[in-house]
């Protein structure tokens, strides 16, 4: 699908959502789609590093939290700053933090990188929890915009982010990401600076995740350490692209949608505290057994197989 089709599809999706929002008066499903969209944005950010560079981060909640707290803190300190501006500033702050932390973190790769990002998440959450200046565990209430403004805003950003990532991965920079993932030695041999390329993906991805965090603050009207910097947030950010199809924009989109829907369905079915994780975990196991590349590439392969078999049969 070329970029023009992505843009047209995005515009249609936005119009349909607006109609739905108007018809249902911002009801549960409209709310839920906005919630899913937050993880779609964050998942696309994670996918830039995890899917297109191949470095699995287990601490993207840090960037989500920075985005959310960049919106929350000025409100907590009663500073009169435009919330939308703060959302954008949150993305920028997450990017700056990623740039700083990329220097030590991206010196390692593979499992040490995963552990490093997890450790980063633990450290930052702990700092927020014990720092009164950051409102510690109390969290911050945000008097946000109306649902009729916030939800379309989130959907609009989600569509824009998906289109942006699809555009980016087909640009020279995106091709560099894939080159580094595919064969780092050969990538160096065509003049690619591995560290700078990884850092670019890390920073852009962190900005997108930070954007999701800022929008989350507007969506929920409340930020606290466990919701924004928690392990669960990191897990659900990475599970979407992982289950949907790592290194694929549509895969990450489907995956984030499926994971969040399943989580909510499981939460309503399994009433035991934390029991819904059982269902999400089971899904992960099933997906990894059936299609290690994820649901979307699995479906694409299956369709191709059926198509080939059909064409072969027609030929006979």
């Amino acid at each position: 699908m070329n970029l023009k089709k992505w843009v047209v599809s995005g515009v249609i999706a936005f119009i349909l959502y607006m109609l739905f929002l108007r018809l249902t008066d911002a009801g549960f499903i409209a709310n839920f789609i906005a919630y899913i969209s937050l993880f779609v944005i964050a998942g696309q950010g994670w996918n830039l590093l995890g899917g297109y560079i191949g470095e699995i981060s287990f601490g993207h909640a840090v960037f989500f939290g920075i985005g959310a707290y960049t919106v929350g803190l000025p409100v907590g300190y009663k500073l009169d700053i435009n919330l939308l501006l703060l959302v954008l500033l949150g993305a920028l702050m997450a990017g700056i933090f990623a740039l700083i932390i990329s220097y030590p973190l991206l010196r390692v790769q593979g499992f040490p990188f995963l552990v490093g990002t997890y450790g980063l998440g633990v450290v930052i959450r702990s700092i927020v929890v014990v720092t009164p200046a950051l409102f510690a565990t109390r969290g911050i209430f945000i008097s946000t915009y109306s649902k009729n403004f916030t939800y379309p805003l989130i959907i609009g950003f989600a569509i824009a982010v998906v289109i942006f990532v699809q555009w980016l991965v087909n640009q020279d920079l995106g091709l560099r990401f894939k080159a580094v993932r595919d064969v780092p030695t050969a990538a160096r041999m065509i003049g690619i600076n591995i560290y700078k390329t990884k850092a670019s993906a890390f920073v852009i991805g962190a900005m997108l995740t930070g954007l999701a965090g800022g929008l989350f603050a507007l969506y929920g009207g409340f930020v606290n350490p466990s919701a924004c910097f928690g392990d669960n947030t990191s897990i659900f950010i990475l599970l979407g692209p992982y289950i949907g199809g790592i290194g694929s924009v549509l895969g990450a989109l489907f995956g984030s949608t499926i994971v969040i829907i399943l989580q909510e369905v499981a939460r309503s079915v399994i009433t035991v505290n934390g029991g819904h994780y059982l269902m999400v975990g089971a899904l992960l196991v099933v997906v990894m057994m059936l299609s290690k590349e994820g649901i979307y590439p699995g479906i694409v392969k299956l369709v191709k197989k059926i198509k080939n078999a059909y064409q072969k049969r027609q030929g006979e």
Binding site: K178, D182, A187
Partner: peptide, 21 residues
């Protein structure tokens, strides 16, 4: 052989042209 396997030949060439090229 170490081509960038997830890319097409054209993309392999494009990325090389955009860097050292």
């Amino acid at each position: 052989v170490m081509p960038f396997k997830s890319m097409t030949p054209l993309e392999n060439v494009r990325v090389a042209r955009a860097t050292a090229g």
